[in-house]
């Protein structure tokens, strides 16, 4: 009976909104939500949550379909979006490789500042994780000691050369004065799994990728790379508190291809702003340690991307492009 009721009400609602909807632009076919990372990672979880919320709350006349294009540290997704110039039915769920991949791979000839700025959904954080079985490692000092003791065979898992976690790994190598082996995996979920299975020694995963393993007692965080401690990890010190000068965030934003119609851009901006302000999204941010207090879109987002691009050029210069691409 309940189903019947929901069905009739939703049909009634549809009938009521239909005439108004004709007035403005809206999707005419399924919208591709391109994820520039593999399944199970932070970006993937976010894209799938957003897709579900859009459909659950009936926010779009056409479904959103998440598609993973993890190849070449996001190069596959970026060149796909580049090739979709002027398309109104493709969006990109971006992370920091949005900046780093075009810097490192100049031959791709991708300028992300031409992409349509839809909105920034969150700032995500990074933590340093090890397997809980490593009882000898309890804090950053014992971690550094263990890395040095391994004599250059310490394996760090990440999501790809030139990806944000490889930059963070290189920053740590520089600040803490050690060397590790960096092994790329397709997606943060696979990285987390390999840490639990002891195939690698440590990772710098985002909270959402390690949350369930942490709750189950399989892995433990040692340091967080925020400015201040984030809510789910009150007991974990920040790098700055420990005197290590690293502060690094992951942006989670949505972009469209260059040349998207302004009406379409406006429609998507409204859609994602509504999602950003929804209870479900804010709850997710809280439980997974994301910072979601400020909605940025349009010109403000373009300015943010510009600043981040400059910062990443500096970061990559500082650690050296060679240290983050595979030798």
């Amino acid at each position: 009976m309940k189903i019947l009721k929901t069905l009739t009400t939703s049909i009634a609602a549809l009938a009521l909104t239909a005439p108004a909807a004709f007035a403005e632009w809206q999707p005419r076919k399924p919208v591709e939500l391109i994820i520039m990372a593999g399944t199970g990672g932070g970006a993937d979880q976010i894209a799938r949550l957003l897709q579900g919320l859009i459909q659950k709350n009936n926010m779009s006349p056409r479904p959103f379909i998440p598609i993973n294009k993890p190849g070449g540290s996001g190069a596959e997704a970026l060149s796909y979006i580049k090739g979709k110039e002027g398309d109104n039915h493709t969006l990109l769920v971006a992370l920091n490789s949005f900046y780093t991949t075009p810097i490192i791979q100049e031959e791709l000839d991708i300028d992300v500042t031409t992409f349509a700025p839809i909105g920034r959904m969150a700032m995500d954080t990074f933590l340093l994780w090890v397997n809980s079985e490593r009882e000898d490692i309890t804090d950053l000092d014992s971690y550094v000691a263990a890395v040095n003791e391994s004599g250059g065979t310490w394996k760090v898992g990440g999501t790809g050369s030139g990806q944000e976690d490889s930059i963070l790994t290189a920053m740590m190598e520089k600040e803490l004065g050690y060397n590790v082996i960096y092994i790329p995996f397709p997606g943060g979920g696979t990285v987390a799994k390999n840490l639990v299975g002891n195939q690698i020694d440590s990772t710098v995963n985002n909270p959402s990728e390690q949350m369930e393993f942490w709750r189950a007692g399989n892995t433990k965080p040692l340091v967080q790379f925020n400015g201040t401690r984030s809510a789910p990890f009150e007991d974990v010190p920040t790098a700055k508190e420990l005197g290590v000068d690293i502060e690094y965030y992951m942006q989670r934003s949505i972009s469209g291809p260059a040349g998207m119609d302004p009406e379409a851009v406006a429609w998507y901006q409204d859609l994602f702003e509504e999602l950003f302000n929804s209870q479900e999204w804010q709850d997710y941010c809280k439980s997974d340690g994301l910072t979601c207090d400020e909605w940025i879109s349009g010109d403000a987002l373009s300015a943010f991307h510009d600043a981040q691009l400059k910062r990443h050029v500096e970061l990559i210069e500082a650690v050296g492009a060679d240290s983050i691409t595979s030798k």
Binding site: G71, G72, A75, Q105, S161, G162, S326
Partner: peptide, 10 residues
């Protein structure tokens, strides 16, 4: 064919 899965080069 495509992107090198490790280094990301075409």
């Amino acid at each position: 064919v495509g992107f090198d899965i490790i280094s990301g080069q075409p």
